[in-house]
Amino acid sequence: MDFFQLLVSGIANGCVYGLIALGFVMIYKATEAVNFAQGDFMMLGAFVMIGFGNSGYWGLPFGVAIVLTLVVMGALGYLIDRLLLRRVAGESQTAIIILTIALGFVMRFIAGIIWGHSPQSLENPLAGQELRLAGITLGMEDVAVILVTVALTVGLFFFFGRTKLGLAMQAASQNQLAAYYMGIPVKRVQGFIWALSGVVAGIAGILFATKGSVDPTTGLIGIKAFAAAVIGGFGSLPGALLGGLVIGIIEPFASRYMPAGYSQIAPYALLLIVLVFRPSGLFSQLRNKKV
């Protein structure tokens, strides 16, 4: 039953990658900018949660800490768009990319100054608990991560498909000019998307912190999540999640069944294979525009 346990922990890791990838793709689709600070966003979310929830800091009740963390992360996402990104709108892609990379560095240092550079973990009610099912032992944290991700996916699906703001976000990402013509305040909608991706990064951070320890360089797993987004076909939300799952599942299996070191390479090897054989990603939504 080794196999099954590897699979579950792989899926749980994959959920975190998938959620970060989701943030990449949401912002890319809506604003055509790639937010390379998305991984650091996640790291910051984890630390904010630790800051609110851990007994060494504010020690607030777990539920309250979660709500506050999501509020803070949403506000941060919105402010980054409002104060920084909107000023470089219309500049070259390079300028935007460099800005977001720099933003990542800033977040890493700020996190280091506030919470220190040594790894910390989140005190949570699930720590150390196990779920036994038909002879298989699963970490309660892994199960919770998977359940939360599923719930969030369903929630986002309904949000984008059914609500007016969700539809407007889709519209702004599919055809920005037409969105203007429909009377959609595109810039404000983009601000909301940044806020939403901040919230998603916050959730990813909380999930990550329940599974393991966090330090200011944790955000570098954003690179793996970026690979996940590309594998999924940068531009498709379900693709981003699935890409994250694929990478999450490959890692533990590569480290279990392949020589040492291969688990680090495996995700990028897969990325190369996908780019060679299906350059637009596994789940691309690209379609030629009719004239």
Binding site: K164, A178, K289
Partner: peptide
């Protein structure tokens, strides 16, 4: 607009709903 500019990945119904945004 010239060239239609519909929202290509959304259903006809959703396109109409956005018209009433």
């Amino acid at each position: 607009p010239e060239g239609r500019e519909v929202f290509p990945l959304m259903s006809v119904n959703d396109n109409l709903s956005l018209g009433a945004y």
